[in-house]
């Protein structure tokens, strides 16, 4: 999967699951703020990424994945 295609797919599944407009998901935006994630719904995001893209974000890695741009990189590098 090309990176742009991956980005579009990630944006699509996150927007659908967390009920936000895709337009608010930008590379520099904070994931937790944009998707209104608390400690529980953050688990759902991790599960969704694992389910859809086969990439597991471990607890220790999660704190460094702050923006959508960092998430795209994280997933693309491990696919």
């Amino acid at each position: 999967m090309e990176k742009q295609e991956l980005i579009e797919k990630i944006n699509q599944v996150l927007a659908e699951e967390f009920e936000v407009e895709q337009s608010v998901i930008t590379p520099d935006a904070d994931i937790r703020e944009t998707l209104s994630l608390d400690s529980l719904s953050l688990v759902d995001m991790v599960a969704l990424i694992e389910e859809q893209f086969g990439v597991k974000i471990k607890g220790t890695e999660l704190s460094s994945v702050k923006t959508f741009g960092l998430l795209y990189d994280f997933v693309f590098e491990r696919m």
Partner: peptide, 9 residues
Amino acid sequence: KDTTLVGSG
């Protein structure tokens, strides 16, 4: 075989 996948709910 992965408990995370059951989701937070």
